[in-house]
């Protein structure tokens, strides 16, 4: 159904994701070549949303693995259900089952807890799922190394059971906030795309799509204001997610136009560092509001 890049753009839009041609091309190629997507960008530019939208478009199951430091095979791939195993051993002991047989039995799939990566390559899924490996930069090098093998062969070896291979390789999206550099070896296996902050037109469309209650004029002012903020020297730039939060907040407050007071009171939805808030609050906010209302 997704036969061209335009198809991808259209499909994404139908699912309320406003993309640009670069991203759509990457997604299209990822699907065609069966390669994982590696999406990098500032926080809140819609990296995770790409995976969610893809799952909706493909009508596939979304399997999400949130990364963190120390993430290991036991939480990412599989784990044996120890308490069940212990109970079962006791049970078998009471009924007098042989040792070898007991060993075979308690390491059977019945006692296997499937974590996200194993779920993603399970072969009883009707179609390839969408696998989201979120914020890979939070994990450590050891986990990255483990992913290398998985992403190229789509198979997992469990010593007690054997090697499991995916019937259909999952559509994989890896995201990173770039809090550290990811090793080249991993990036090499993926299609890389840097998602930038959107320009005015794109962000305006995003606000209209995601916050349909927002009046036209307000939406324009909001986006202009945020675009101006991104031009300033801030410790943490507001992302698209913050723009949407702020829009929703202003709609909830029944605003038709930006005003200095309301901006000052709701800056917390946009800026997350006190230094940034104090920098913008007051004079800067007044000037920005004036400029935004004039245009």
């Amino acid at each position: 159904m997704l036969q061209s890049i335009d198809d991808v753009i259209r499909a994404l839009e139908q699912h309320q994701y406003i993309s640009d041609r670069g991203l759509a091309t990457t997604i299209f190629l990822g699907l065609k070549l069966n390669k994982p997507l590696f999406l990098e960008g500032e926080a809140g530019v819609g990296k995770t949303q790409v995976a969610k939208t893809l799952a909706a478009i493909l009508d596939a199951r979304l399997i999400r693995l949130q990364c963190y430091e120390g993430l290991d095979v036991n939480t990412a791939v599989y784990e044996w259900n120890y308490s069940q195993q212990m109970l079962h051993i006791r049970l078998m002991e009471a009924t007098g089952v042989g040792r070898e047989e007991a060993r075979r039995e308690i390491f059977s799939p019945q006692f296997l807890l499937k974590r996200p990566l194993l779920q993603a390559i399970e072969d009883n899924l009707p179609r390839a799922p969408v696998l989201l490996i979120d914020e890979i930069d939070r994990s450590d090098e050891e986990f990255e190394a483990y992913l290398l093998e998985l992403l190229s062969d789509w198979q997992i070896t469990i010593p007690e059971i054997g090697t499991l291979k995916a019937a259909h390789a999952p559509v994989t999206v890896v995201t990173s906030n770039r809090t550290r550099e990811i090793h080249d070896a991993l990036k090499r296996r993926c299609l890389y795309h840097w998602i930038d902050f959107p320009n005015f037109e794109k962000e305006y469309r995003i606000v209209l799509t995601k916050v349909p209650d927002a009046p036209d004029r307000l939406a324009q002012q909001i986006v202009r204001f945020v675009q101006e903020l991104r031009r300033m020297e801030l410790y943490k730039m507001p992302g698209v997610a913050e723009t949407l939060d702020w829009s929703a907040a202003l709609v909830a407050l029944d605003q038709q136009d930006l005003s200095e007071n309301v901006v000052n009171e709701t800056l917390g939805a946009l800026l997350k560092y006190q230094d940034d808030v104090t920098k913008v609050q007051g004079a800067v906010a007044r000037e920005l509001v004036e400029r935004v209302r004039k245009s």
């Binding site: 963190y68 430091e69 120390g70 290991d72 120890y82 051993i89 002991e93 040792r99 007991a102 308690i106």
Partner: peptide, 26 residues
């Protein structure tokens, strides 16, 4: 936050415990 197997440590390694004690019938 990553754990490694050691001879004497702070956390039980359940996977190895189960495996090691199979031979004692649980």
């Amino acid at each position: 936050r990553r754990k490694i197997p050691v001879r004497h440590g702070t956390h039980l390694d359940l996977r190895r415990v189960v495996r090691r004690n199979l031979k004692y019938g649980g």
